[in-house]
């Protein structure tokens, strides 16, 4: 099957700074594809390049088998980070623009009702809250039958309830569509995603299904320990996992361990000589994986710590 979206060795620089470096991937199955990484890692540039808002320096972007697609904006919808709504137009008028552009026959009110947004139909967009504006933008984006949707931080800066509503809406539509989503709240975003691309400094450092990404590091838990206490705990940590991995950041040592299946958390607390030095202890998550892949890490050397 031909991939619906394919990127081949995409590169982009601003002045002399490379922001996308050799990005390649193919996607053809419906689902939510998370593009994650910190601010400035190249997520937005990548997404904007995919929708033709930015010209790439090298490489190719194919949509439905063709690059330089003249009908790109009929196939691929884009949600930008800001709202992009005209402040003196109503929701009704914003909907009418989409209906006119795509020649759609939609009953506005019942469509909005399905998203619980019908009460805003005649409201000028400048009077809407930030969360509602984002929801309206998303609703507008779902109106045409785009095959691919690219959402740049759709839930960024919103309260928990709005984030949850937006993510649930995205998940609902992902059964028939390819949806790329960028976010820097990795763990929450990952809950709703099927596939993850982790980016750092313009490169994809890891990609795969959620399970593949989580399992690529042969560790199960992470302990955050005060850096000055780490040396005292290293012996007991090696009793739990002799190949534990550490990563030092901002006065804290992050210890990645593999807890054997037959051992539970209680075993860790009993083994560690000074549990008060442990600031946090949790099952490994996507942010830990990201941190592990992109931060400075050292494989524990027993002799060095003795």
């Amino acid at each position: 099957m031909k991939p619906f979206i394919e990127l081949k060795n995409v590169e982009k620089s601003y002045d002399k700074k490379k922001v996308l470096n050799n990005i390649s991937f193919k996607v053809n199955k419906p689902g939510v594809y998370l593009i994650a990484g910190p601010n400035g890692c190249g997520k937005t540039t990548l997404l904007e390049s995919m929708v033709g808002l930015r010209q790439i320096d090298n490489g190719e972007i194919f949509v439905s088998g063709a690059n330089n697609h003249k009908d790109l904006h009929h196939h691929v919808g884009f949600l930008l980070q800001g709202t992009g709504l005209r402040k003196n137009l109503t929701v009704k008028e914003e909907m009418q623009l989409i209906k006119d552009l795509f020649q759609l026959e939609i009953d506005d009110l019942s469509y909005l009702k399905s998203f619980n947004l019908d009460q805003y139909y005649l409201t000028k967009t400048q009077k809407l809250s930030g969360g509602t504006k984002r929801r309206i933008m998303l609703v507008l984006l779902f109106m045409p039958d785009y095959q691919v949707l690219i959402l740049d931080e759709p839930a960024s800066g919103l309260d928990t309830q709005s984030r949850s509503i937006i993510w649930n809406t995205i998940k609902k539509f992902s059964k028939q569509k390819i949806i790329f989503v960028s976010d820097h709240y990795l763990n929450q975003a990952a809950q709703f995603c099927d596939y993850v691309f982790l980016m750092n400094k313009g490169e994809i450092v890891s990609s795969g299904s959620k399970e593949e990404v989580l399992n690529q590091l042969d560790k199960t838990h992470v302990l955050n320990i005060q850096a000055n206490e780490f040396r005292h705990l290293s012996k007991s940590l090696s009793m739990i996992d002799e190949h534990f991995v550490t990563l030092h950041f901002d006065g804290v040592t992050y210890v990645f361990i593999k807890l054997p299946k037959e051992k539970n958390i209680q075993h860790v607390w009993e083994t560690i000589s000074n549990p008060h030095a442990v600031l946090d202890f949790h099952a490994i998550d996507f942010e830990d994986i990201y941190f592990y892949l992109t931060g400075n890490f050292t494989i524990y050397d027993e002799e060095e710590c003795v």
Binding site: V51, G52, L53, D71, H73, H74, G77, F78, L80, G82, T83, G84, L85, R86, K87, I98, L101, F102
Partner: peptide, 16 residues
């Protein structure tokens, strides 16, 4: 104004 409201950017992702 359309540019400062980010609407211009949005319009360039629509079929126009």
């Amino acid at each position: 104004e359309v540019r400062s409201q980010m609407a211009l950017k949005r319009y360039f992702t629509l079929p126009v």
